[in-house]
Write a protein that binds this DNA or RNA. Structure first.
Lengths: 332, 332
DNA sequence: CGCCTCTTTGCAATCGATTGCAAGTGCTAT
DNA sequence: ATAGCACTTGCAATCGATTGCAAAGAGGCG
């Protein structure tokens, strides 16, 4: 600021340039100014700079976790993704503005971008084709969504290869002799729908019949896995010998209930999850699951968003998944 | 902005006042201006306002989770706390700036507050009396720490009643006939030290000897619980009949390893955890644990920080904990 | 009818950093 | 000696919203 200029005996303009290592400024002057600034531990006022520059160097992350669907804010997978986003954003020199607040959600673009709180938006939690995302797409706001590409919805996504994940998981169960494989998840969510498509592909490839009754709509989180297992698996006459859960959290709930009921996993019923959250390995038995590459996910979300902000054309990114085999699937 | 003023045929000053419902402005004018602003969906530029007001309406949350101590960024307890902070901050009209970036950590105050990115700081993860916190205390930056009060460290904290938690958990085990109770945790962290003090209190109250060998330094996270169980509990000749873990994550790792080794929980060894993360209920067996009130924690962190920012004197807050009894403790 | 009061509105300065353009210095070449 | 050029530095405008103070208009009262 002005003080430093006074102390250094130069103008504010020179101070400003010196602190940014502008080549316009003489080497000695620059050093001296930087020295003085350091001594008086002066920091450029980020608010003023951002104001002048019409940029915020900030990305907003919106967690559209709707408790109605059983998503918890502490969902281990989403949080790991958030961490990875934070790392990458920091790496690129951006701050992260976090929002989980439903009151801002009505007009994400207005609140964050038009009012200059952030330069771009990362939306985690695609939901069931949330209409707010379509609104957002109509505005000029740069944003990117973690999830699946959905035809007819005009926004850019980054997500795992959910179809392949569903396919591989199901195929694994079939290879281990399972024939009646239940599917636990809410296929109204695009990501889950893709996993479901992979599930059906594997069945049909193996010549197994697809039984509608084996598809059990289940919201996220352990408690729903627990509850649905209670009602549909134990309560019904499903006669299934395996369960593919669209998340590890659901799988944890399933295993808990099965275990309480004296059903052995994987002997009586095999279980496969999705995500590979830290808890999957520490379950008893360890959960065989489809690992999503969180690190790559965060990296791509940030990089693609920055590209969008620069006006570049960005396509959908699909990240490969990896089958992680533990005990719950009954692999020989 | 100027456009709205033009459209409404008034000055910018009037627009500014009208949009804030200033009583200086005539009712009709106010309505008309607001109407016009809405039609053209104009939003006040938050950057400009913050710049002028010398305030950011933003709190920075710094996650000092050091991987060295086994803390994971997705630690369920910390994330739940973060969510609660986010809710409360939003409720109070503040945005949240998230940082997990070690590069900014060297000078938290400079990066966030002095450079006007945030008005105050919430630090999650007290660590082993992190010297950075003492630096922060020396600056004029308003900040608050989740953790335990530590004599000689001059910053304000909000945290659970860790001593009571450790005491109650241990007492429960003793009441259920356990005599050799191991303590798993790193007592160099102030919070864990308090739990340890409670543990010793309960022992001495029951007239049980304190055995140094039963205290096993264990970093956070499941994997360390697993590993220490392997080495110290199974590998050693401890002969313990119960384990008090300073976190549910550690307990999960412990139970996993015990189960693999054929040791029955709670029959052979009872286990008690801390935090009551969602996974605790879904473990097999369900983990008896000390519940921390995350909701109240987030609320107090934000409220106390705002009070500090207003220049009020704020003391340490200690939040009561609650014993949650499940199967792992062998309660009759 | 004039003066005073109250309400409503506008003027203009301000926050702190950035940057296009002009100007000053010193040196070389003619 | 002076025009020409490179290199440094400063001037001053700018970003958009806020607010103290002044002023204009409306209404009341003697």
């Amino acid at each position: 600021m002005a003080d430093i200029a006074l102390l250094a005996g130069v103008s504010e303009a020179t101070v400003s340039r010196a602190l940014k290592d502008s080549p316009l400024i003489n080497e000695q002057t620059r050093q001296r100014v930087q020295e003085i600034a350091r001594e008086h531990n002066y920091r450029v006022n980020a608010a003023a700079r951002n104001f002048r520059m019409k940029t915020t160097k900030t990305l907003a992350v919106v967690l559209l976790v709707d408790r109605e669907w059983g998503h918890e804010l502490s969902d281990a997978f989403l949080m790991a993704l958030l961490g990875s986003i934070a790392d990458e954003a920091a790496h690129m020199g951006y701050d992260l503005l976090l929002s989980t607040n439903p009151q801002n959600m009505t007009d994400l673009s207005a609140f964050f971008v038009e009012s200059k709180r952030a330069d771009g938006l990362i939306v985690i939690g695609q939901g069931r084709n949330d209409p707010r995302l379509d609104n957002l797409a109509r505005s000029r706001t740069p944003f990117i969504v973690w999830g699946s590409e959905v035809p007819g919805h005009d926004y850019v996504t980054v997500g795992s290869d959910n179809r392949a994940g569903g396919y591989e998981a199901t195929k694994l169960l079939i290879r281990n002799g399972r024939r009646r494989i239940a599917f636990l998840g809410d296929i109204r969510h695009p990501e889950m729908e893709d996993r479901f498509i992979g599930y059906k592909e594997a069945l049909s490839e193996a010549g197994l019949p697809f039984d509608e009754a084996l598809v059990i709509a289940t919201e996220f989180s352990r408690s729903y896995g627990y509850e649905k297992t209670d009602k549909a698996i134990l309560g019904g006459n499903l006669n299934c010998d395996a369960i593919f859960c669209v998340s590890d959290n659901i799988a944890l709930g399933v295993i808990k209930r099965l275990s309480e009921a004296g059903v052995r996993v994987p002997d009586d019923i095999a279980v496969v999850g999705f995500d590979d959250i830290p808890g999957a390995a520490f379950s008893i038995p360890g959960i065989t699951t489809v690992r999503q590459d969180v690190h790559e996910g965060g990296r791509l979300l940030v990089r693609n968003l920055l590209a969008l902000m620069k006006g570049e054309k960005v396509g959908h990114s699909v990240i490969p998944v990896e089958l992680v085999i533990r005990q719950s699937c009954g692999q020989a």
